[in-house]
Simulated scan of single mutants.
Amino acid sequence: MPDDQLSRVFAALADPTRRDIVGRLAVGDATVGQLAAPYDVTVQAVSKHLRVLEDAGLVSRTRDAQRRPCHLEAEVFDLMTKWIERYQRQAEERYQRLDAVLARLQDDEQQQTDPDEGAAS
């Protein structure tokens, strides 16, 4: 298992069942039994998924009398968002540079096809 939190988060979310559990917890806290209900798996299997999500810092469990509700730790998504936004900015900068190059090429092509118009400018 990778040792940095971002890698653990992405690894945890690589599984569709865990992504679905996270989506359900985004609506509100739930017990393991409540989370297991819609799946054709055992409560133990869902508990294993929750342990992976806990290890990644995405989920925490509290004790409420006999209940142990699971809670989504949404601030972990800030870490993911910052990482994604950094690469999004870099990609946007590359696309802007590409747009500028293509615009120059189009201008050069237009001047070659209509040299009189280029001289009048």
Rank of each mutant, 00 (worst) to 15 (best):
L105K: 09
L98S: 11
D55Y: 01
H49P: 07
T42K: 01
R8L: 14
K82R: 13
Q111G: 15
D4K: 12
S60N: 06
Y39F: 12
I84F: 12
L35T: 01
Q66E: 02
E92A: 05
E75I: 03
V9M: 02
P16M: 14
D20V: 14
P69I: 00
Q34M: 08
D3K: 12
E54Q: 05
D15K: 02
R63M: 06
L58E: 04
F77Q: 02
V59S: 02
D64W: 03
Y39G: 07
T62I: 08
L98G: 08
A14L: 05
A56Q: 02
A65D: 14
S47A: 14
R97H: 15
H71S: 07
A36S: 14
D64N: 06
R61E: 00
R68N: 08
Q112L: 15
E73K: 00
E54L: 01
T62C: 05
Q112I: 12
E54A: 02
T62M: 06
T31A: 07
P2C: 10
D29V: 14
R86I: 06
A74H: 08
Q110K: 07
A120Q: 10
Y95E: 14
A119M: 11
D40P: 06
Q90F: 12
R104C: 04
R18E: 09
G118D: 10
R61P: 01
T81N: 03
R104M: 03
V32D: 13
R8W: 11
V41A: 14
Q5P: 04
Y95P: 04
A91W: 02
H49D: 08
I84S: 07
T42N: 02
R51K: 10
R51G: 15
S60K: 07
V9L: 03
G23Y: 06
L58S: 05
K48H: 05
L79N: 02
E93S: 12
A26Y: 05
R89H: 02
T113S: 06
D4W: 14
Q96L: 15
E75G: 02
W83R: 08
V43A: 09
Q34I: 12
Q44C: 09
L35H: 00
V22I: 13
E109D: 07
A103Y: 14
H49Y: 03
P16I: 08
V52A: 11
T62D: 04
E85K: 13
T113A: 02
V101H: 12
Q110E: 09
D55R: 00
L72Y: 05
T62P: 05
V101R: 11
R94K: 10
I21W: 11
Y87C: 01
A14F: 11
L102Q: 09
T81Y: 06
R24W: 05
V27L: 00
E117L: 07
D29S: 12
L35N: 00
Q66I: 09
L25T: 01
Q90L: 13
V22Y: 11
Q111S: 14
R8N: 11
V41M: 10
R19Y: 11
R97Q: 13
T17L: 15
R86Y: 09
T62K: 06
D64I: 07
V9A: 00
R18D: 06
A74C: 04
L6P: 04
G33W: 10
I21F: 10
R63C: 01
A30M: 09
